[in-house]
Amino acid sequence: MATHGIATQHKQGLSNGMLGFILFIASEVMFFGGLFAAYFIARADATEWPPENMLTAEQIARGVKLEVEFALPFIATILLVLSSVTIQFGVWAIRRGDRTALIRWLMVTIVLGLVFLTAQMFDYSQLHFRAGDTVYGTTFYTLTGFHGAHVAGGVIFMGVILARSMAGQFSAARHEAVEACSFYWHFVDVVWIALFTVLYIVK
């Protein structure tokens, strides 16, 4: 790389790649910030929440009920938080140069991510409202849907990292992509904790 002229990286601190990745995550935070703002404004406007009073006769006849289950999402939340711990074990492993442990922890984290997505899909199938059923349904599916898409993206990201690990890449000195992947996964996790809090706890 040195032959490509004067474009050099700083010798200490974050690499260019990590700095760029953190800026990317900052932009993601602003994206979810916009969605959260919409949710809070909808709640602030509402005279009751969930807004059962906004349901039309057609929606009531269809059996729409604006309520969510708690138990399954709660278990899924615990699994997702746990997956943040497992990927961090993977990061610590590769910092020691232990690629075998990295591969093991990545596999565990991917499985936890897939279980979370499955639980979310199952949860969706049990609900008695759609995205079009008042702003409650719209915000619920938009926020959890965009988060779910990010979980899926994170699982694919981890899949790529797993494939690269199994191909013998990454060492104690060079494993930037693993660190970036863990940053992303922690970000996805933190967004879910915020989402779970406002959608399921602060009713």
């Binding site: 994206f31 910030g33 969605l35 919409a38 909808a42 995205a131 349904g137 719209t138």
Partner: peptide, 27 residues
């Protein structure tokens, strides 16, 4: 990205019956 979130909401309102900007649905 905040504009992107607004555009996503508009797209959802237009195509999936969303109520972000529809006062009749509490938006």
């Amino acid at each position: 990205p905040v504009l992107a979130s607004a555009l996503a909401m508009l797209y959802i309102d237009r195509n999936f019956g969303g109520a972000f900007f529809d006062p009749n649905g509490g938006g």
